[in-house]
Nucleic acid binder design. Sequence first.
RNA 1: GGGAGGUUUCCCGAGUGGCCAAAGGGGACAGACUGUAAAUCUGUUGUCUAUGACUUCGAUGGUUCGAAUCCAUCACCUCCCA
Length: 413
Amino acid sequence: MQLFEELKQRGLIAQCTNEEKVCDLLDNHTGVPFYIGFDATADSLHVGHFLQLVVMSRMQKAGHKPIALIGGATTMIGDPTGKTDMRKMLTREEIDHNAECFRVQMRRLVEFGEEKAVMVNNADWILPFNYMQFLREVGVHFSVNRMLTAECFKSRLEGKGLSFLEFNYMLLQSYDFLHLYRAMDCKLELGGDDQWSNIINGADLIRRVEGKDDAYGMTFTLLTTSEGKKMGKTEKGAVWLDPEKTSPYEFFQYWRNINDADVIKVMKLLTFISLDEIAQYEKREGSELNAVKEKLAYELTAMVHGAEDAEKALEAAKSVFGVGISSENMPTTELTHADFEAGNIGVLQLLVKCGLASSNGEARKLIMGGGISVDNEKIADTKASIHENSFENGEIIIKKGKKTFHKVIKTED
RNA sequence: GGGAGGUUUCCCGAGUGGCCAAAGGGGACAGACUGUAAAUCUGUUGUCUAUGACUUCGAUGGUUCGAAUCCAUCACCUCCCA
């Protein structure tokens, strides 16, 4: 199957400036340079970026040349698209640090090197720009009237207002495209669908400045749940690709617990599993989908963290939710003799100590709600305490709710 | 520069002197049901040595027996006019 058709069938393509031309470019040419921009707002990429990385990888596998643009300069402004609040301003140092972290994570999916993929930083060409020069070269081509009607500023115009600083974001991103068009013959900019306005303005700028209409843009479906919410957010924040921020097990579980309605969609979007194979999974219904979810979680974890970690996460999940409970990969808290009073420790203190409850009060409520078990015995009394002798094999297992397990071991001082 | 309004517990948002740890919704957590899903129903959602005490309603001072509520100053935000 041709690349464009595959992207389409996987449901990746949201909008395209000129479908025929882009299709031709992708399917009948090789080594086509294309770029995707990433703003270095945090020190790790997250699931939202992941889709872009996978796209880069697909394109690269099809013989094209990805340009990963790190927004060293644009991050200093912050993209106002779809945001209700202005972003926190980052210092140059923070941005550089973040960019470096991105670099490391991207390597998992995209192969960088001569004639392969390249990474560029727009700080290199934007920062040297002089203000007047920028206004005269780039600013003249933008109509404020038109910009104000752009969908991407809508929430800000109705809400908290848009600062001039952020208003410039679109110009800078547009200029990025122009720069890459000139410097690297890059004729295609890709991005999430929220980037549509920024992308078409870039293509527009090229048309005006260069007088050529062979710059194209294409956007990809945003990762949203069937309810229209952004995917990749949990109560703890984003689902990160950095194992320090989101452990492979948590990452695995995130996908394992995906909605029925989203499994196939996500599988098409994010994995390299063939469409034929996915079509088989699509026939499954009800609880049979559990196996598909497991497959999805495994695949994605392997893509991000490697097969070894994916295997571990799978095993850990199986042992926790499967037949017997294995305590091997559980989060663990160590207690010493000093933690006990006359050989006992109160359950409330224990829960807080393990981080299962943030206060004694919360611990008490959990117990009263019947949510806590120790070694498979439900704790009913908030005043209960655990004796040192309970640590027969040197450990006890606390279970909070259905999915949270915590191991406590007692060490000899 | 002038004028108006706002800042409430994780978020949105009610409350305009005691009945306020503060309605309602969202989210989150737990229970039931299940398939480690969704939906639904129930409970919880400031802290503590817990039928009580303490801390909280932008910040600081003040009025009052008593303040989220009134007054003053400061900070930040939004809107309107220039």
